[in-house]
Design a protein around this nucleic acid. Structure first.
Length: 518
RNA sequence: GCGCCUCUAGCUCAAUGGCAGAGCAACGGACUCUUAAUCCGCAGGUUGGGGGUUCGAAUCCCCCGGGGCGCACCA
């Protein structure tokens, strides 16, 4: 932390007089506190007491002091714990060390024991007999009315954001519950959770630029994974018929309100299933989770309603593009025509793009920004889906869909490509693109090809962006809201800033659902 | 990477070329039912950093740094 010899800026003056804490801020603080009740529980249990009514029930509560109202030989303090708030009521003739209690500051942590009472003014309170300081807030936090609103401070010092802002606590708690509920649903449906490597010798499973790191003993560069996809399918080859992983992936790309360099995704694979099976799975999971976590499948995102209840609209990419351009086109249309239509939008057209890529570009340029959903966009071109199985009715298409919810791609799923020879050809096409300068094109993964040669049964796979799902459920416009410690540029120690040089920016990450592969 | 906006006390904000201020918290004090308690007092600043213009710069100009949004990148 900070250098002990140099007082950090913002530290409030050392407390004196009646304080238990003098020279060393944390001396005298106990190692544990035996709490017997939480605030919400007390509010529920004693909320019906009449004003002025006193009980003989002793409780022990602990939490952080949010407000203090000293009143001569009385003092009131608002105590908050993770469940809610309850008032502490101190009286000179009842409360030990009353003078020190009356000098508590906002942010101090205390444990207190006493009887449950309701004050004359009707506020449920713990009439404190004994209390103990559990931590002293040497730094004062934000305005007690306005809290902390500065976006940079909120994300760099999440602890004071969470301390000051109810909504931030709500959002991160909902995210936690989202992941827990998702796990429970999947386990109930017979899926097995696994963990696959984050350090990859070859980044695969998606089209994205990776982060590079280095293993000293092996003297080898390794990559932080851009997707767990290939390892998960190798587990299916090994006999795990229904597997999933919820974990962090890392993509070396720009930041935006919708992109954090590290983000969380669910990937799920099921043997003997195809992509159509996942249409209903996605509809059910997403709408059920919305109901469980928000109370309704009808949400509002950015003020605009979205109804997640099944069934969702299903429409092919070719249909959408045809509708939008007024020309009936599909993946078999002459590339010149597709290129003309794309050029008409003002987009760059690369000569080496095939009809599949051109169709995808048209979709992304013209259609996707208008979609609100929920809608399943079906049947992506095989050319842009190197890990997806060709459509059973059209080899130029892949059995792949994306689920668009609130204008964002939330899920990406396909029938998995199981043919090792076709997979090798697709990898080779990717390698060619890579050689031509496409840094995001895939690399040939011989380990994966060998696994396919041992036999991957018909399998469906699915990727879902956890962070974007959390944004949807919490009506958050910025992905950073749903990430406890979003990636920020490290502060320079010489530059001015809100505080001393913080050791670094962020850690955890966010939620782009998918790219390319999944 | 580019463009626009932004950075003033711990926090929330004023001061638009003329003495850097307020509220909150913090610190000291008064007060036996408060609810953002109230009242009295006391402190608190390299105006993100550096340079320039000017008699005079928080304010105008340049460079650098952080952040936000948009674009690009990315799906």
């Amino acid at each position: 932390m900070a250098h002990p010899a140099r007082p950090a800026p913002g530290l409030r003056a050392q407390r004196q007089g009646g304080r238990r804490i003098t020279s060393s801020p944390m001396s005298g603080v106990p190692y544990r506190f035996e709490r017997t009740a939480e605030a919400a529980e007390l509010q529920a249990r004693y909320g019906s007491l009449a004003a002025g009514e006193e009980t003989a029930d002793e409780v022990a509560v602990a939490g952080r002091v949010m407000l203090v109202r000293p009143q001569g030989r009385l003092a009131f303090a608002t105590l908050r714990d993770s469940s809610g708030q309850v008032q502490l009521f101190a009286r000179d003739e009842v409360t030990e060390d009353f003078d020190a209690f009356a000098k508590l500051s906002l942010g101090d942590w205390v444990g207190a024991t006493g009887k449950m009472v309701k004050t004359r003014r009707g506020e449920l309170s713990v009439l404190v007999d004994e209390w103990v300081l559990l931590a002293e807030a040497l730094r004062s936090f934000g305005d007690k009315w306005k809290g902390v609103t500065d976006v940079e401070t909120r994300f760099r010092q999440r602890e004071i954001d969470l301390w000051a802002n109810e909504r931030s606590r709500y959002v991160l708690l909902l995210r936690s519950r989202l992941v827990a509920h998702l796990r429970r649903h999947l386990e109930e449906r017979g899926y097995v959770e696994v963990e696959t490597p984050i350090l990859h010798a070859i980044p695969g499973g998606a089209m994205a630029k990776p982060f590079v790191t280095h293993h000293n003993a092996l003297d080898a560069d390794l990559f932080l994974r851009i997707a767990p996809e290939l390892y998960l399918k190798r587990l299916v080859v090994g006999g795990f018929e229904k597997v999933f992983e919820i974990g962090r992936v890392f993509r070396n790309e720009g930041l935006s309100p919708r992109h954090n360099p590290e983000f969380s995704m669910l990937e799920l694979y099921q043997a003997y299933a195809d992509y159509a099976d996942f249409l209903t799975l996605v509809e059910e999971l997403v709408s059920q989770l919305a109901v469980e976590l928000t109370g309704s499948s009808l949400l509002h995102y950015g003020g605009r309603p979205i109804d997640l209840s099944p069934p969702w609209r299903r429409v092919t990419m070719a249909e959408l593009v045809s509708e939008e351009t007024g020309h009936t086109v599909d993946v078999h249309s002459p590339p010149e025509e597709l290129g003309r239509l794309l050029a008409a939008t003002g987009a760059d057209v690369h000569e080496d793009w095939g009809p599949g890529k051109l169709l995808l570009e048209l979709y992304e340029k013209l259609v996707e920004p208008q979609l609100w959903g929920p809608v399943f966009v079906m049947d992506f071109p095989a050319e842009v889906s190197p890990l997806a199985r060709r459509h059973r009715q059209d080899p130029e298409l892949a059995e792949r869909f994306e689920g668009i919810v609130a204008g964002r791609e939330l899920v990406n799923a396909f029938s998995e490509l199981v043919d090792p020879e076709d997979q090798r050809r697709r990898f080779e096409a990717q390698a060619a693109a890579r050689a031509a300068g496409d840094e995001e094109a895939m690399v040939i993964d011989e380990d994966y090809l060998r696994a396919l040669e041992y036999g991957l049964p018909p399998t469906a796979g699915l990727g879902l962006g956890i962070d974007r799902f959390a944004m949807l459920l919490t009506d958050s416009a910025n992905i950073r809201e749903v990430i406890a410690f979003p990636t920020l540029r490290p502060e320079s120690s010489t530059a001015g800033g809100p505080d001393e040089a913080a050791p670094g920016g962020g850690a955890p990450g966010g939620g782009v659902p998918d790219r390319g592969g999944r």
